[in-house]
Design a protein around this nucleic acid. Structure first.
Lengths: 188, 188
DNA sequence: TTCACTTTTTATCATTTGTTAATGGATAAG
DNA sequence: CTTATCCATTAACAAATGATAAAAAGTGAA
């Protein structure tokens, strides 16, 4: 199933998969566990098998601001862009019970150098990450909160009934009270 | 001066610089020239020597939404994350007369594979790009428009008096009328 | 079940931002 | 110098969103 996850992003041969396969370590997280902490050492890549996670930052007021959600069978933001000097730039927590495999990020980076399929896979993950951020960026700059909510529903169907609304609200750039209001309007 | 630009991001040896140096082609853009177009073929990296550029997307209403600004001696968003299948995902235009050097992106990617200094430089550009987007993301999600304007001024001092306010407004996620209002308040 | 706790909704009012349109200022062409 | 054009500002009103607090609904443990 990890192979399916990878192939759904960029198709690689069984040989190439074998090279990554050796690096996997299985992990299990409880709901609400923050397993990547800002400013702490981190040298892993994460492939999420099931469950839901969010990446977030703490704003000056002390609130968690959701950056992205990660559903089952997705890759968390790549190590290169998530860390500086091996220290994490963001936090990641599980919002449900979740299972994942981790890989040593340095060894994976070496594979990206030596194996073109793995490099293409890694670069595709990077591009997806950026495309995601650009999509969100233009939404924040040109759509109303209601439109952003509707986009959120398209992009993450079913998530709305599974995770705390506060996490969704900060993702949308509004308060949870406003979200409740928009939900009511959208229901009509 | 191109060497200074590179070294200001990640210090590389003269040998490594020599490898990049061969790839440069000089370009000059008039103010208002869109030299990267969405959905069009693109295989270049861009190092901006002087002038100011913006990356942008067109929203459903037909407006240009500014994604980022690029000042003198900076690197435009790397080709990997800016294109898919060699087709550009965004537009880039010069807001002033500008000079740049371009490089063949595929040849640069090869250098990133064979030369660790160039790879580190390229990855640093990637990280900076993402850090930038995350900073903006959290600002859009947790700051008021006025605070975002003040942040913009810190980040791009002097830009406010050089480029059209509409470009700044869409960057901040507000209308140009609102920007004018905030400018007046902030002046007090 | 009941109780304690958290989350979501609702209501009220204040503030921010958008929309539209008119005004003024700058700039460039004739 | 005039005219035309573009851009920024201002004004008035509408709409969206925030802040606060109270009520309702859900959740989990004893």
């Amino acid at each position: 199933m990890i192979k399916d996850l990878i192939n759904s992003i960029y198709r690689i041969s069984d040989n190439s998969y074998g090279e990554i396969d050796k690096l996997f370590e299985y992990r299990c997280y409880e709901a609400g566990e923050t397993f990547v902490n800002k400013n702490q050492f981190n040298d892993k890549e994460y492939f999420l098998l099931n469950g839901i996670c969010k990446s977030f930052l703490i704003n000056p007021g002390g609130d968690e601001i959701t950056l992205s959600f990660f559903g089952e069978k997705t890759v968390l933001s790549p190590h290169t862009i998530r860390t500086k000097n091996q220290l994490s730039l963001i936090c990641v927590k599980s919002l449900t019970k979740a299972e994942a495999v981790t890989l040593d990020a340095n060894k994976f980076a070496e594979l990206m150098v030596s194996n073109i399929e793995i490099r293409n896979f890694g670069n595709q993950v990077l591009r997806n990450e950026l495309a995601d951020k650009m999509e969100k960026e233009i939404g924040m700059a040109s759509l109303t909160a209601k439109e952003r909510l509707l986009n959120f529903r398209k992009k993450y169907p079913s998530l709305e009934n599974v995770i705390p609304h506060t996490d969704i609200a900060t993702y949308l750039g509004i308060t949870n009270v406003s979200l409740s209001r928009l939900r009511k309007e959208a229901a009509r």
